[in-house]
């Protein structure tokens, strides 16, 4: 009796994951059917493993903010600012041989600067949300402007081109025969997942998102936990920024602006409840892969990037409609 109930609970809990997998397979099959010779190429999948991790990390960051019923509209700003600050550091420290040959120590320093940017930016968001008590939407809307604005001030507008080779390795190198960003993504996803399920921080975030008032009366450190969650969000965004600047060998204040919508979409599609209390890394990871397959399929079919934006938007609305329909049936 007890075992049976547990089994059903597990199946229920994973119903969302099963649905996501089914959706991914469907997209895969449809795209294969539409252009079998091009879509199934190894090169195609390999390039996806280089591109999706940055968006995947931004989506996981978005999910973490949504766990407590918040949202982080500044993730793209944080990512760009991180890349730009590191880029400026490399330009300043580069010797006659040029930026590309910068030594490992300086590159690591750049990494520290980038991650530190994410940490500080996230802490600022967290401070505004927990201490000043600004709604997450407005707080991150404002700080997003500030971060992007600082990026413009620092660069004056144009991109910073040219990053050290060690740095680029993070964005387009190989590790164990796989794309470095992909390997990093898997490791980070596992780590975040572990934090959410197996540490007091993660469980507390879920509880706070479920009922903030009850969390207060149960003595949870609500402010501190929410603060940490935005710091995590900021750090994840800055890692995405490192990957982005490494992959493109450049950093600019308005890179990846369409990532914001896509990160929200993927988080929601991955089963995150925007009102808080529910969200899983695995769901988000599958959702990002599904949508990347969709995107690359359409690119192969020679759809313009603008049309792909259109499709993403339509997909988000479709997901909302389907979720609403499912809830009604239940």
């Amino acid at each position: 009796m007890i075992n049976k109930l547990d089994f059903r609970a597990i199946l229920n809990r994973d119903k969302n994951i099963v649905q996501l997998i089914v959706m991914t397979v469907l997209i895969f099959v449809i795209m294969t059917a539409l252009s079998p010779d091009k879509f199934l190429r190894y090169y195609n999948f390999e390039s996806i493993t280089y591109i999706f991790p940055e968006l995947g990390l931004l989506s996981i960051a978005m999910m973490i903010a949504m766990l407590t019923g918040g949202i982080d509209l500044s993730v793209v700003g944080i990512a760009n600012l991180s890349g730009i600050l590191a880029g400026i550091l490399f330009k300043k420290l580069a010797d006659e041989t040029g930026v590309a040959d910068t030594g490992l120590a300086v590159v690591l320093l750049g990494g520290v600067v980038a991650l530190g940017t994410g940490l500080v930016a996230g802490a600022l968001n967290g401070l505004l949300i927990t201490k000043v008590k600004i709604t997450p939407i407005l707080a991150t809307l404002g700080t997003g402007q500030v971060f992007t604005g600082l990026a413009i001030v620092l660069t004056g507008g144009p991109a910073i081109v040219g990053f050290p080779e060690h740095w680029s390795w993070v964005g387009n190198g190989k590790l164990l025969g796989l794309a470095t960003p992909f390997v990093l993504f898997v490791l980070i996803a596992i780590a975040v997942s572990f934090i959410l399920v197996r540490t007091p921080l993660g469980v507390n975030l879920m509880l706070i998102g479920t009922n903030p008032k009850a969390a207060l009366f149960a003595g949870l450190k609500r402010e501190r936990m929410v603060f940490y969650s935005y710091m995590m969000t900021g750090v994840l965004a800055s890692i995405a920024g490192i990957m982005l600047s490494g992959r493109t060998n450049a950093a600019k204040s308005d890179y990846g602006t369409s990532y914001l919508l896509q990160a929200v979409l993927i988080a929601v599609l991955g089963g995150t409840n925007p009102a808080g209390g529910k969200g899983r890394v695995l769901g988000v990871a599958i959702a990002v892969i599904a949508l990347m397959l969709l995107s690359s399929g359409f690119q192969i079919l020679r759809f313009s990037n603008h049309l792909i934006d259109f499709i993403w938007g339509a997909f988000l609305l479709l997901v909302i409609a389907i979720n609403a329909y499912k809830n009604r049936v239940r």
Partner: peptide
């Protein structure tokens, strides 16, 4: 979602 759709449609 709607904003992205409309803009994507216009430009695309």
């Amino acid at each position: 979602g709607t904003g992205s759709m409309v803009r994507g449609f216009l430009l695309g």
